[in-house]
Design a protein around this nucleic acid. Structure first.
Lengths: 277, 277
DNA sequence: GTTTTTCATGAATCCTCGG
DNA sequence: TCCGAGGATTCATGAAAAA
C-alpha cells in the first residue's frame, strides 16, 4: 500500500496552509494524486473586450484588460482549460468535488470540457448580484449574475460531502436552492493597494466562497484553489476550520494574500473581547 | 436581385402561422436563407436519468423519459445540436437573434457549440423558478433555475432588435436584468389530455416566452420555433402581433398545439364583452 | 455632531448611419 | 472598409464632501 493511501495529508504538508507562488500546472504536477477534498477555481474568463466603454457621464469603465486574461482564440482557451481541469482531477480524491465560477464568456467552454473529462455535474448555481454594473448603452439586459458549476469526479463517484442540513439551516429552514444572492465584493472587504486602487480586478465575495466551503467540505478537509488571487478561498477555509492549498502566479496578488492571511491569523488570535482587558 | 431580397415574407407564406408537422432539419432545409427575425428553441435536454426517482412518501416522480430525449453519448447529442443550430443560423436574418433554453444537462454543450458556429452571445438569462421541485433525497441544492442563451448571428452583426424601453417599463422603470422570475407552467395554463394527464412533459410558461418575443422582435416579425411542442411560442407570437413558424415532430403535440391555437384565435375574435350581447 | 449631497465604481464580449 | 457625426444611454452602494 502506498504511503499516500495511508496518510495523504502527511504528503501534503509542504503545500498546506500557505500561498504558493507559481503556475498552477507546475504546482499541481507536484502534488500527490487523490489528496484533495475540495477545489474552488476562479479561472480567467477570456472576456474578449473590444473597445473602451464610456458611461453616460462620460467617465471610462475600468475594464479587466489584464495580460492574464488574454487568449488568442477559443481553441487556445479550451486547451488552457482542459489542462488545468485535468490536473485538478488528478489531485482530487475520488470522493472530492470541484467548483468553477465564470460568466457567459467562458462558462460554456468550461462546462463542456468538464463533461468531456468525465466530471459529473451535481448542480449549477447562480450567483445573483444585488448591485451589478448596469448596461450603460441600453443595448442588452443588465448582466446581473455569474454561474458556478459544482461537480464530482465521475458519474459513479460516491461519498461526496454535501452538508444538507447546514445549508438548510442557512436558508431559514428550507432547502438551499441553486440561486444565491450576494452583493459584489466592495467596501472594507475589497483589498486596496497603497495607492488606494483595488489590488485584484475580480475579487470574489468572501460570503460566497464560505458558503461553498461549508456546503461541500468537512472540518480539517483540504481545500485547493489553483487561481488563488488575493486569497479569498484561503480565508474562507481558515474561518471554517479547513486546511488550504492556494496557488497564485502573480507576485502582487501573492503579496497581498499573504498580508491578508497574516491579518486574519492575528485577528483570530486576538479576538475583540481581549482588547481593553 | 433574388426575390427573397425583395419580399422575404412572401417566400415564407407556405410555412407562416401554422404548426408544421415534421422533423425540424427537414423543414428548416426548405425555408429560404436569411428570412427569419427571431428563433426561440427549447430542444431536448438529454437528461440522462439513471433510475426512477422516488419521493420521500414512496410515490414515483413522473420524469422526462420520452424517446425523443434519449441520446447515446455527448458526441451524439453534440452532433444533433450542431446540426439544428447550423440549420437555424442559415434561415436567420443577419440582424436576427436566437434564444435557446436548457439546464445543466445540456446547456454547456449548446453554449459551446453556439460559439463554435460563430454565434455571439448577447446575454445569458436565468429563469428563476418560484416553485421548483425540491431535491427529494437531500443530496444536492434545489435545482431552481433554467438557463436561456441569447445570441446574434455573428460578433460583427448590427441592427439586432432589443426593445430596451419596453423591457425597462416591464421592470418598474429600471433596466431589465438577466435574472427573470416566473412560476412553472401549471394550473389552467398547463395543457391536459382527455385522460387528465399533462400533454407535454416540459411545457414552458407563456409569460417567459412572451417576454422573449417582446424583448427581441418587432410587430409583424417572423418568430421561428424548431421544437414547438404544444405551441407556446406560437401563442406568444400571436398575442404580441408577430407571425410564427412552428415545427413539431410528435403528432400528439401537433394536435394539442393546433387545438390550442384554434382556441386562442376564437378567444381573440370573440372577446369577453361579446358574450351575452 | 448630524444629515444631505455628491461622487466614484463594479469580470462589460455595450450604437447607428452616411459618406 | 474606415471614419466621423449624431444621438441615446446607468443602478446600487459606500465613501467623501458639503450643509
Amino acid at each position: 500500500m502506498a504511503i499516500s493511501e495511508i496518510a495523504p495529508k502527511q504528503n501534503l504538508r509542504p503545500w498546506l496552509d500557505r500561498i504558493i507562488r507559481g503556475d498552477c500546472l507546475d504546482v499541481l504536477a507536484q502534488l500527490p494524486a487523490g489528496s484533495v477534498d475540495l477545489i474552488f477555481a476562479d479561472p480567467p474568463y477570456n472576456l474578449q473586450l473590444r473597445q473602451e466603454l464610456i458611461r453616460p457621464d462620460t467617465s471610462v469603465v475600468d475594464a479587466v484588460d489584464d495580460e492574464w486574461d488574454q487568449f488568442k482564440s477559443f481553441a487556445d482557451y479550451d486547451r488552457f482549460t482542459a489542462a488545468w481541469l485535468a490536473a485538478c482531477r488528478r489531485v482530487l480524491k475520488d470522493t472530492g468535488t470541484l467548483w468553477v465560477i465564470g460568466t457567459y464568456h467562458n462558462i460554456y467552454r468550461v462546462g463542456s470540457i468538464l463533461q468531456d473529462l468525465g466530471f459529473w455535474f451535481l448542480n449549477d448555481v447562480i450567483w445573483v448580484k444585488n448591485n451589478p454594473m448596469p448596461n450603460f448603452r441600453g443595448v442588452r439586459f443588465t448582466n446581473a449574475h455569474e454561474t458556478l458549476l459544482w461537480c464530482k469526479k465521475a458519474a459513479d463517484a460516491h461519498g461526496c460531502t454535501f452538508n444538507y442540513q447546514d445549508m438548510k439551516a442557512e436558508n431559514g429552514g428550507k432547502q438551499m436552492r441553486s440561486d444565491w444572492y450576494f452583493p459584489l465584493c466592495t467596501g472594507a472587504e475589497r483589498l486596496k493597494g497603497r495607492d488606494g486602487e483595488k489590488v485584484h480586478p475580480t475579487q470574489k465575495p468572501l460570503a460566497l466562497v464560505e458558503r461553498i466551503v461549508r456546503a461541500s467540505s468537512q472540518a480539517d478537509d483540504v481545500v485547493l484553489d489553483p487561481f488563488a488571487g488575493v486569497g479569498t478561498t484561503a480565508v474562507a477555509a481558515l474561518r471554517n476550520g479547513r486546511r488550504y492549498i492556494a496557488i497564485e502566479r502573480e507576485p502582487a496578488y501573492v503579496e497581498a494574500a499573504e498580508q491578508r492571511l497574516a491579518d486574519e491569523q492575528s485577528r483570530r488570535e486576538l479576538p475583540l473581547f481581549a482588547f481593553g482587558s
